[in-house]
Design a binder for these strands. Structure first.
Length: 426
RNA sequence: GGAGAGAUGGCCGAGUGGACGAAGGCGCACGCCUGGAGAGCGUGUGGGCGGCUUAGCUCCGUCCCGUGGGUUCGAAUCCCACUCUCUCCGCCA
């Protein structure tokens, strides 16, 4: 959620940000907000004056009673005023709710360094690392390799659950587990993150806090009886660790890393990535989340991205870093880098990590603040998160990049200690 | 799942429907005292919204005692619902 003061003071800037994102200002209704906002303030002035009168009268009544005076007339008058207040309070609530509802549709404003463009075609390549592996044979996609090695079982995954669920067997299951441990170790031991293992179900407030609700409700698996949903990403529970809290400035930045399974209905992506393990309803992910000082947030985005990249470097997999354009940027993000990994089997780059800076957009919604060390009012922290990395896609990338002509797959050296010394999957 | 107890400021803890943003204590900050520290004394010590003014964060108003409703001229206090915590019983990896 944006700061209402920003919308009041610089409505044109906010509107431009909406248009740059390719959104409609009918949907993101800045003028509507301004109108409701000024109505709200006018009502407040009026009703607060009435409340003041009520408070004064309260004292008078108390004093009169003590002296045994007649409170009848003043009580009658206040009865009327109280009725009036009740009505106006309801009106204020209504106007306020309307304003809030509209404000939830206003996206974050992109950082000035974000390329302006309509969609992903305007994304800008920031850097590229390594080179695509060269093969003396026609490289195969991971689903063919995995089925041939009998380590990816799509049929049985579908039998147990449904399509987009895969049964991992043997070396694939082991590699999945190894990657989780490898990434957690890297980020905790070398990058200074604190490991957490959060609840995998979260409540409505937690989803609202990070901006997943109301927008992405269709993509979530709800447990209706309990009003809980399976998490779509660890961002949800981890960012909400500090919901409603006031941190001390000295505690910033706070850096967490979590492994969790993630669950997405993938509504509306029928026909996309139907083969393989790229797009699953259930997948594993190691996620980094930071709570930082507002002055540091964009530097923190750079280091967060670097932390995610380090995983791919150590696995020796070719990738590039893209800065998302305004048209491709997530609703709550001010700036976002995607790490795209080279899928040797299909010859394309595939998103494997998304590192975003949300400025105070999430913190305002989730009410996460810090107390300035020098005193003064609490301020909103800035939040960031990034995958470090998506596990299943990493498995797929390794299988495709490290495949041999005989169908075997070489285990990257960094991963071998985590796989009991296994060097080749065969 | 059953029975009970509870939720008040950074923490502990009091609070007969009008004196309560809230006693008292602890903590913290500043000042006095001290060679220095401690003790002692004094002062201060939450947040949201709005207004004024315009940038002073001083002033004024309003709201906040788990959350949301209700009763009342007036609610921390009475009523209802919900959430959470604790204890006991049952079940369970």
């Amino acid at each position: 959620m944006l700061d209402i003061n920003l919308i009041r003071d610089e409505p044109d800037m906010v509107k431009k940000a909406i248009l740059d994102r390719g959104m409609d200002t009918e949907v993101a209704d800045v003028d509507g907000i301004l109108e409701l906002d000024s109505r709200r303030r006018a009502l407040l002035v009026e009703v607060e004056e009435l409340k003041r009168q009520r408070n004064v009268a309260g004292d008078e009544i108390a004093a009169l009673k003590k002296e045994g005076g007649d409170t009848g007339p003043i009580v009658d008058r206040m009865r009327e005023i109280s009725e009036h207040i009740k009505g106006m309070d309801a009106e204020v609530r209504e106007v306020e709710a309307g304003r809030e509802a509209l404000m939830l549709d206003i996206p974050n404003t992109p950082h000035e360094s974000v390329p302006v463009g309509p969609d992903e075609t305007a994304n800008k390549e920031i850097r590229i690392w390594g080179e695509p592996p060269r093969f003396t044979f026609e490289p195969r996609p991971h689903w063919e390799i995995g089925e041939a090695l009998d380590i990816l079982d799509f049929k049985r995954g579908a039998k147990i659950a449904s399509t987009r669920f895969t049964l991992l067997k043997g070396a694939a299951a082991l590699m999945e587990r190894a990657l989780i441990n490898f990434m957690l170790d890297l980020h905790t031991r070398e990058h200074g993150y604190t490991e957490v293992f959060p609840p995998i179900l979260a409540n409505r407030k937690s989803f609202e806090g990070v901006g997943q609700l109301p927008k992405f409700g269709d993509d979530m698996y709800w447990c209706r009886d309990d009003d809980l949903s399976l998490i779509t990403t660890a961002e949800v529970p981890v960012t909400n660790i500090h919901r409603g809290e006031v941190l001390r400035e000295e505690e910033l930045p706070r850096k967490y890393v979590a492994y969790t399974p993630c669950f997405r209905r993938e509504a509306g992506s029928y026909g996309k990535d139907v083969r393989g393990i790229i797009r699953q309803h259930q997948f594993n992910k190691v996620e980094m989340v930071k709570f930082v000082h507002p002055d540091a947030s964009f530097d923190e985005l750079e280091s967060l991205t670097t932390n995610a990249e380090e995983v791919l470097k150590r696995l020796d997999i070719h990738y590039r870093v893209m800065c998302l354009s305004t048209g491709d940027l997530g609703f709550a993000a001010s700036k976002c880098y995607d790490l795209e990994v080279w899928m040797a089997g299909t010859g394309e780059f595939k998103e494997i990590s998304s590192c975003s800076c949300f400025t105070d957009f999430q913190a305002r919604r989730a009410n996460i603040r810090f107390k300035p060390a020098g005193g003064g009012k609490p301020r909103f922290v800035h939040t960031l998160n990034g995958s470090g990395l998506a596990i299943g896609r990493t498995v797929a990338a390794i299988m495709e990049s490290k495949q041999l002509d005989d169908g075997r797959v070489v285990v990257p050296p960094a991963l071998q200690p985590y796989m009991g010394g296994m060097t080749v999957i065969e």
